[in-house]
Every structure is written in structure tokens, then in C-alpha cells.
Design a binder for these strands. Structure first.
Length: 478
RNA sequence: CGGGGUGUGGCGAAGUUUGGUAUCGCGCUUGGUUCGGGACCAAGAGGCCCCGGGUUCGAAUCCCGGCACUCCGACCA
């Protein structure tokens, strides 16, 4: 027991998962609290993770033809009001600017909670012809939503994200874009963050305010709760009509374009923490870790150790890895614990005995496995171990998802599964809002999504017993 | 927004019931010895006791009002 838990300061995750999470985000130096509720400071280590996420996704977006833009942070109230469902969805959680200096503004402005209205207004100015389409835009920015309950990474009042917004000549093209971007997110989560996802569609109750359809990737955290990790929306031409965005099509007729938007946020970092973390702290997938390898010299005062550590570091850097060494005067044991806390995927120990044997010792963060690596094989062996760590993390998370997703045919079965195991439940659903509400009321679960990969669990709705042909995944979500 | 808990050097706590000028551990600084799982010795530095009022000769402590953090709900990425 105790020997597994090397860091006493962290609350045991099986005792109190929420407290464990708070301990990790502060002790791994990811987050500091600002003086204002819901506004968090992303410290350099957290921001470096975000930059890695940005860099991969931004590259993908651009490969697919998207361009980055920068929209204003303020939205005039009249603009926000234009699309009815949208304003109803967001009005309760926007913050308002009412003064410029000491002068009261003629019209108050909200700090953007999302930028659909800004993009729409802009497009209504510039769109003329079918030759202008598609418009494939994205922006990296922060948005503000006045949430009641806030938690680091999972629910900020101000959070960093990217929001892609696109306009297309046809419904088919827009729907294809929506699917394409959902797939980009799913692929990124699985390949880079080692987080398996369930792709599917949101129910009407859960979809984005103003959307025709919302698609989502849902992940399962270590505590078996769900995390919506990315969304992609199809808007039809509703916003275009509300904002009077038109173009002249190939038949010389005025037409409304079809629209999409899609986004991921710094919540992904929360997902990484809660998917892979353990009782020693953070565990980062190698592909996204700011530091992939930490070289720790042992018995630094002995001749040649510091030089050897520097040499290994330089060689691994040259091999394309993100690697650092720690020549600080803390004891090796302190350093081991420190970088475990920070989730560095691989540690390399190099001391006098190793130098004598022409080797170093590589220690994996995910399972503690130690390997002696011959120094002349460094460039081949270390990347291979990192790949294995990446793979191992994904497989472990996939097992958690699969082992904790259970079928149910009746509401009583759902309740039994939830009280006994938690996790996700898959059931048939008739499509009625009343049944969805009853699931929440009686079993405490919300619909996560209607997965693209459907299974036939039963012939009838889990709730009302009427014929049903849709399978829904339910769970408790962050 | 409803219900609970908390707020004391950087961190974690004691002190609050019963008012008398703040204590401990960790960390930090300097010097020395150490170094294969959070080393040791010595000497130092560091406090608007969350904020604002009030009671009192005197408030970390009692009273009133705020704010923040945290957990559980409802709302949401």
C-alpha cells in the first residue's frame, strides 16, 4: 500500500477523487488561483501542455484549409439577440460591459461566451458569391461564461479554446465539415492524449444553443464520470437567415449558406489529468508532455557524472525528444518524486555505476518499470520506450471505458448498475424528452450521446417501454 | 443559485469554546557534510491572523456584513 504512494501530500484518488484532482493541479505546478472566482492562472507547465495541443491541432486545421483570424472580445447586445435559441442559451451566463471609462455606454456589450454572432455579422458584410465559399475560419482565444460552480480546467469562467467557424454553399458540404472536424478531434484525443472516445450525436436537450445538430466526443475519466471533450455543430442556415448572410449561387439566385462551428478547450488538460493520473500525481502521455525525458544525475559530485548527464541530454535532444536534465542540488530521491508528481513520462538515471557499465537506467512513469539502456543504443531504445508508454496509457484508459460501460433494459437495471458500479450505461431510447428527464430524475444520469456505433440492446425504450431504435450512452458527467 | 466545510509566514496545521499581542512542521536563505527513492548539522529571513465595520482598556479569538476557496446538488465546454 504505502510503498505505491510515494508522495504523501497528495490525497489518495480512491479516497477522494475531487481532492486528489485539486492536489495534483496545484502540486504539479499547473494552476494557481487568482483573486477572482473561476479565473485561473495557467502556470508555465500547464501552458506548455496547451501549446503542444495547439500546435498539433492548428497544424491539422491548416492542412484542411482553415485560416486563423481574430475576432473582437466584445459583442453588442443587439448582435447577440439576433438568433433566438442562441441568446436564450447563453444569456444566463454572459458578463456585461456597461461603461467605457466613466461614461455609460449607449448599448451594453457582453464579453464573448462564443463567437458565432461575431462571425455571422462579419460574413454578412463580406460574402457575395458562391466563389467566396467555403469560408473556413478558426480562432484561438479565450471566452467568458459566468458559471456558478468553477473548477480548475473543468469549468473556468474564462477559458482558452479554439473555435472553428465555417460557411458552405450546401448542406452536404457543411455536414461533411462537421463530421470531418469531429474526426480530427477524436483522432487527436486517441493518438496524442491517449484518451479513447465515444463519437456520437447529442440529444436535442444537450445540443448547442442554435444548432441543428451537435456531435461530440465523450471520454471516461478514472472515476468513471464522463467528460465531453470536444464538440462539432451543424447549424443549417438558421444563423445565416437570422443575420441575413446571403450569396449569389451558380444559378444566379440569392441563397443562404450552411454553417458549422467546432471547438475544444483547456478542459482537455483536465481530461488528461483525470484519465491518466495516479496517486503519485500527474501522468502525461509522451506525445503531449512538455518534458518527455528528465535526466537525473546521481552522485553529481563524482567525477564525470554531470558531464555524462549533459551528454545524454544533448544526444536525446538531437534525436528529436523534449528532454531536460536537473543539476539542482536536491537529492536524487527528491528529484524522482518531483518529476513523478509532474508526470514526466520517462526518467533517466545516470550515476557512477552506470558510467562504469556503459549504461543508464530508464524508469517509466506509467508503471515504474526500470530498464538498463546501453549508452550506445540510447537513440533507438528511448523513443521506443516512450512509444510503449503512449500505447500502454491508451490501452489502460480503453479498458477502463470498456469495463465500465454496461447495457441495461429497464430503468431499474440502470439504477442498479449506477448504484453498484457507476460508469456509463447503454440503453435503448424512444427519443422523448420526458424519458430523458426521467433518467436524470430517477437514475441521476444524463445522456452523453447517441453513439455512431449503435448496438441493439432491446426493442423498447428503457424508460417508457415504447418501441425504440436508438441506443444512448448515459452517465454522470463533469 | 441552494446546502455543508474552510480561511493564521510560501505550504500544511495548533491557538478561537473561556479576549491579554502568535506557535509547530515542511519549505526558503547562507555555510558545511551528503547523494542509486523526498539526506543531515548549524545559523538566519519571513506574519495586513481573508477584507470592512462594531464591542472592549485590549480582538486571530466575541458580534454584524462582505469576499475567496472547497465539496454536494441544479446550470454548463
Amino acid at each position: 500500500m504505502a510503498k505505491d504512494k510515494k508522495v504523501e501530500q497528495i490525497t489518495d484518488m480512491d479516497v477522494d477523487f475531487a481532492q486528489w484532482f485539486t492536489d495534483v493541479v496545484t502540486k504539479a505546478e499547473l494552476i494557481d488561483y487568482s483573486g477572482v472566482k473561476g479565473f485561473f492562472i495557467l502556470r508555465p507547465y500547464a501552458f506548455a501542455i496547451w501549446e503542444n495541443i495547439q500546435s498539433v491541432l492548428d497544424g491539422r486545421f491548416k492542412e484542411l484549409g482553415h485560416e486563423n483570424v481574430s475576432m473582437p472580445v466584445l459583442i453588442p447586445e443587439s448582435l447577440l439577440q439576433k438568433e433566438k435559441d442562441h441568446v436564450e442559451g447563453f444569456a444566463p451566463e454572459v458578463a456585461w460591459v456597461t461603461h467605457g471609462g466613466s461614461e455609460e455606454l449607449a448599448e451594453r456589450m457582453c464579453i464573448r461566451p462564443t463567437s458565432e454572432t461575431l462571425f455571422c455579422d462579419h460574413w454578412s458584410h463580406i460574402l457575395r458569391s458562391w466563389r467566396d465559399l467555403p469560408m473556413l475560419y478558426n480562432q484561438w482565444c479565450s471566452v467568458l461564461r459566468w458559471e456558478k460552480t468553477t473548477r480548475p480546467f473543468l469549468r473556468h469562467r474564462e477559458f482558452l479554446w479554439q473555435e472553428g467557424h465555417t460557411l458552405h454553399a450546401t448542406q452536404e458540404e457543411a455536414e461533411q465539415e462537421t463530421q470531418q472536424m469531429l474526426n480530427v478531434y477524436a483522432d487527436f484525443c486517441e493518438k496524442y492524449l491517449a484518451m479513447p472516445v465515444i463519437k456520437g450525436q447529442k440529444t436535442d436537450k444537450e445540443k448547442f444553443a442554435g444548432a441543428v445538430a451537435t456531435y461530440t466526443i465523450e471520454c471516461m475519466m478514472h472515476d468513471k464520470k464522463g467528460l465531453q471533450s470536444g464538440t462539432s455543430h451543424y447549424f443549417g442556415d438558421g444563423f445565416a437567415r437570422a443575420f441575413d448572410i446571403q450569396f449569389t449561387d451558380k444559378e444566379n439566385k440569392l441563397s443562404y449558406p450552411h454553417q458549422t462551428s467546432w471547438g475544444v478547450t483547456t478542459r482537455l488538460i483536465g481530461g488528461i489529468i483525470m484519465t491518466h493520473g495516479d496517486n503519485s500525481g500527474l501522468v502525461l502521455p509522451p506525445k503531449i508532455a512538455p518534458i518527455q525525458v528528465m535526466v537525473i544525475p546521481v552522485a553529481m559530485h563524482k567525477e564525470g557524472v554531470i558531464e555524462k548527464a549533459a551528454e545524454l541530454t544533448a544526444r536525446l535532444k538531437a534525436a528529436g525528444l523534449r528532454v531536460k536534465n536537473d543539476l539542482g542540488d536536491q537529492s536524487p530521491g527528491w528529484k524522482f518524486a518531483q518529476y513523478e508528481m509532474k508526470g514526466v513520462p520517462l526518467r533517466i538515471e545516470i550515476g557512477p555505476k552506470d558510467i562504469e557499465n556503459g549504461q543508464c537506467v530508464a524508469v517509466r512513469r506509467d508503471n515504474g518499470g526500470k530498464t538498463a539502456v546501453a549508452l550506445n543504443e540510447l537513440e533507438e531504445k528511448i523513443p521506443a520506450i516512450l512509444e510503449d508508454v503512449q500505447k500502454g496509457l491508451y490501452e489502460k484508459a480503453l479498458k477502463n471505458l470498456q469495463d465500465n460501460t454496461r447495457p441495461a433494459k429497464t430503468l431499474d437495471e440502470v439504477k442498479a448498475v449506477m448504484s453498484e458500479h457507476g460508469g456509463f450505461v447503454k440503453t435503448m431510447w424512444c427519443g422523448d424528452l420526458d424519458c430523458e428527464l426521467k433518467m436524470k430524475e430517477d437514475a441521476g444520469v444524463s445522456s452523453r450521446c447517441i453513439p455512431f456505433e449503435q448496438e441493439h440492446i432491446a426493442d423498447t425504450c428503457v424508460c417508457c417501454g415504447k418501441p425504440a431504435d436508438k441506443m444512448v450512452i448515459w452517465g454522470v458527467a463533469y
